[in-house]
């Protein structure tokens, strides 16, 4: 009896602590976003930062996205083919399944999750290091709107470049499926092409790109939040980078469900 009471009180205390922290984070996140979306002091400087971020956050991810997409496309095709070894089911269904898997889920969601790890940790650790080495304070002392100057170009860069990355990923995923599927003799080129064209819904591309843009914002803004408010030293920068990746991945998965329900449900 005594144990039960102690257990419930402890759980209640932990739940309250978690909720307090959760709402504190939400509040600080939105206050940061208010600071981010302010009128730039100097558009030319923001443009330079945008181009720099476009390269470091977008162009630098091209290789990774291309390789992963190509091989996952291949794996999806091979696995689908192995599971459709029924002579009644036409082979072009392999291409349909590959196309739908790649466009609806793999490219927008899985690639965004991978980018949450790569880009998210990059943003959080860069901003965190700037915070602990007083570079952000230096910007503030100069009179620069630090949150806006450091974060807005990153958000703009990912909002602009992630749809390009995801479109490329869809294309390469399907090409990978086509190449490996036909090379292994699991499906003929004619059957694969027929399957790709059958029952095609252009809205799925729109749906995928809407998700991509929302995910890009989620990844960049949450990672920036964890980086911008780092307190301490190298250990805290590392810890906050991990938190940035974990939180943005979780929010991304939740948003994925909400968007799917809204747009396709």
């Amino acid at each position: 009896m005594y144990f039960d009471g102690f257990f419930y009180v402890t759980c209640l205390i932990f739940a309250l602590m978690f909720l307090t922290r959760f709402f504190e984070d939400i509040g600080r996140y939105f206050m940061l976003m208010k600071l981010v979306f302010r009128r730039p002091d100097n558009v030319r400087m923001y443009w330079s930062a945008f181009v720099r971020d476009l390269y470091s956050l977008g162009v630098n991810s091209l290789g990774l996205v291309c390789i992963i997409s190509l091989f996952v496309g291949a794996v999806v095709t091979i696995q689908t083919a192995l599971n459709l070894e029924n002579p009644i089911i036409p082979k072009y269904y392999i291409a349909i399944a590959t196309r739908e898997s790649i466009i609806l889920e793999f490219s927008p969601t899985m690639i965004s999750l991978i980018l949450a790890g790569k880009v998210g940790s990059n943003i959080a650790s860069t901003l965190g290091t700037m915070r602990v080495s007083e570079q952000i304070d230096a910007l503030e002392v100069m009179g620069v709107k630090s949150a806006s100057y450091l974060i807005m170009p990153k958000i703009a860069a990912t909002l602009f470049f992630n749809p390009i990355l995801i479109t490329l990923s869809m294309f390469l995923g399907i090409i990978g499926g086509y190449f490996f599927g036909t090379a292994t003799g699991m499906v003929t080129p004619t059957e694969f092409t027929k399957g790709l064209q059958m029952d095609y819904r252009p809205f799925y591309i729109v749906y995928a790109l809407i998700k991509t843009v929302v995910f890009a914002f989620v990844i960049t803004s949450i990672s920036a939040y964890y980086g911008y408010f780092v307190k301490g030293g190298a250990v805290e920068v590392g810890a906050n980078s991990t938190k940035a990746v974990v939180t943005s991945s979780l929010v991304l998965i939740l948003t994925n469900y909400l968007l799917t329900q809204l747009l396709l449900g």
Binding site: R52, T129, M130, S133, E134, Q135, D137, A138, V141
Partner: peptide, 13 residues
């Protein structure tokens, strides 16, 4: 205002 920080706080990039 001008400020010289303890660790210089130069922008790495």
């Amino acid at each position: 205002l001008g400020m010289v920080f303890q660790g210089s706080a130069l922008f790495d990039s």
